[in-house]
Simulated scan of single mutants.
Amino acid sequence: MKSNPLFATMCGFTEKIPSYRSFARFDQIMTTNGLWEKARLLVVEYNKGEGVVETNEEAAAVDTSHIEAEATLNKTRKTCSCEGDCDCPKVLTDDNVGVMRKSNAVSYIAHKLSMVCGVRSGLPLTREVFKGNTPDGKTLEPTLETFKTEHPEMAEQLSFILADGIYQTPENQKVTKDVLQAKLVAPINPRNRKDKPTTARGIEKINRYGTPICISGHKMELRGSDRAKGQYIYTCPVFHPNGSPPKIRGVGGLIYTCPVFHPNAKQEGLTCPLANHAECCNGAAQGRVFRIDFDQTPQVDVELPQHGRTFEVLYSARTIIERIFGVLKDGYSLRRVHKRGKQAVEAHVDRCMISMHIMANMAYYQTGKANCGWTRNRLQRAN
């Protein structure tokens, strides 16, 4: 309130801002009675009615992030008023924290937040708070159930849920279909898979992501699938299948295409030595066409293969939720929570979401476009 006069004015404090103690007392009353959650739902519904949040979204993004906790792991406190040591039961000071490991060298004592947002609106819609060490893949079902309960009309419109590779499991695919009748769009998570050698002509191996690698070291391009035969169809990334490149005649009368100056090359900078081209493609102008059975690469989603163009276009919209987390943490104080317990963390997240929706509403009325940012220039334009 004090650092952002525009926000204070939007909240109705035009003359005097209440003291910190007043805000703390108000916050405690709202948290204890679960009123922050109700306020969040009202603000989101209001923005949906005003057109700030689009309700006809075809795709939504879901992801998790950590909120640093003001707590010590497994620290307990007494529940009695006894002086000194006693046998009275003790409870954890914060039973919702856990160790969240970002890498082998970085870990946090934190809470885990799962959130859903529309990819076009770019505003958070639903949140769920979990213990810090909860696996990301286990957070999907409760989050989608909450989203369906809070926004049933949007849930009916959704066709795709965009998520990170950690969510890519058969169980989560089934959960998404059962809860929302939607398709989970997530990249391949190779987990413990390894590259597999193959005896196919011109193909060196199938890598751990299910992509054929030719003897020149190039990844083959997925062109489609043959559902009748249960096969994926891959083509050469150097020689365009519909091109008519310049030809040269080599030893034995074989016809080769130029690996360097091909005018219709699919990927710039890729070349194929003539010897490899002869071994792999027999000099075919369109390059190698390679078929592989579905069951040889179970990590690839048959319904929506991750190596195809359709998947790339859909999945490119998922980054919006990463930006939302960044804005919430850097601009709305979501990075760390200073109270303990799941209820207090949920209230903290609700307040951050309410603030973002208020700012987006301001921007929408002044500029005609929702803006969830917080920087001074954006706020001045929104005002």
Rank of each mutant, 00 (worst) to 15 (best):
G118D: 08
Y167D: 01
M356T: 03
D63M: 05
H151S: 06
E279N: 11
L140G: 09
L144W: 11
E45Y: 12
D295P: 01
F13G: 05
P124Q: 07
T14Y: 12
I206V: 14
Y332N: 01
R376L: 12
T31S: 00
S216F: 09
V337A: 14
V300Q: 12
K75V: 08
Q28E: 09
T146E: 14
S225R: 10
Q28H: 02
H348P: 04
A278G: 14
E150T: 07
I17G: 01
C214Q: 02
N276Y: 08
N133F: 02
P142W: 01
A60D: 06
S3E: 15
P124H: 07
E268F: 08
Y232D: 02
L254P: 03
A344T: 02
I29H: 07
T31Y: 00
F290G: 07
G243Q: 05
P190S: 03
G253F: 08
S225A: 09
L254V: 14
G341L: 01
P170K: 03
S22M: 07
Q28C: 01
P187I: 02
M30F: 08
Q267M: 12
S65M: 11
Y108M: 06
P237I: 03
R309F: 04
S81D: 11
C86R: 13
T176L: 01
R376W: 11
T76I: 06
D164T: 03
N4E: 14
V300E: 10
T79Q: 15
K148L: 09
L304S: 06
M10L: 15
A344M: 00
I206G: 10
T176Q: 00
V302N: 05
L379P: 04
T169W: 08
K78H: 14
N377A: 13
